[in-house]
Amino acid sequence: MSEFFEQTIQPHFNFWIYVILMMLGLWAVIAKKNMIKKLIGLSIFQTAIILFYVSIGVKEDATIPILDHHGPEHHEVVHENGEHIEDAETSAHPEEVHEKKGDHSHGDDHGHDDHATDPDTMANPLPHVLMLTAIVVGVATLGVALAICQMLFKEFGTLEEDEILAELKDSASDD
């Protein structure tokens, strides 16, 4: 059991979570009768895919992907108690740069520029960018769906699908 965990689940932990979340969402969309619950399921479904994409972009010990175009003369790296402290211009997240430097045991000023252009030290930004768009799409879908739910409620007085279907059937037999 522990072997199974270590070999199959642990290395792909994110992906297991995303599959479970996705199936939960899909189940809610199919099985739940209440429209709002269906929409919650739909949201979970879409969010699971976002988790999947974000997992693609992850690298171990990687930092945010911001290219550093400052020349070395703009660097003001001050040694203080054995740590680098940089001004805000140089890097948006000094702490992460420090960690990264520590990993690669670069202590000098020149190491900084090398890091900034080395793709291995940066998380892949593209999946994140894609997911920004996908989040917007998801929000838009949810907005439209909620608006339609509101219309449904105005027309039927309920959001339970079986009640709506029953009412539609009644009105069809009246015709």
Binding site: V29, M35, A145, I148, C149, L152, E155, F156, L168, S171
Partner: peptide, 12 residues
């Protein structure tokens, strides 16, 4: 009314 119900199904 059927159109509204069809629309939500289509959304899902």
């Amino acid at each position: 009314r059927r159109g509204t119900h069809a629309a939500i199904n289509y959304v899902l």
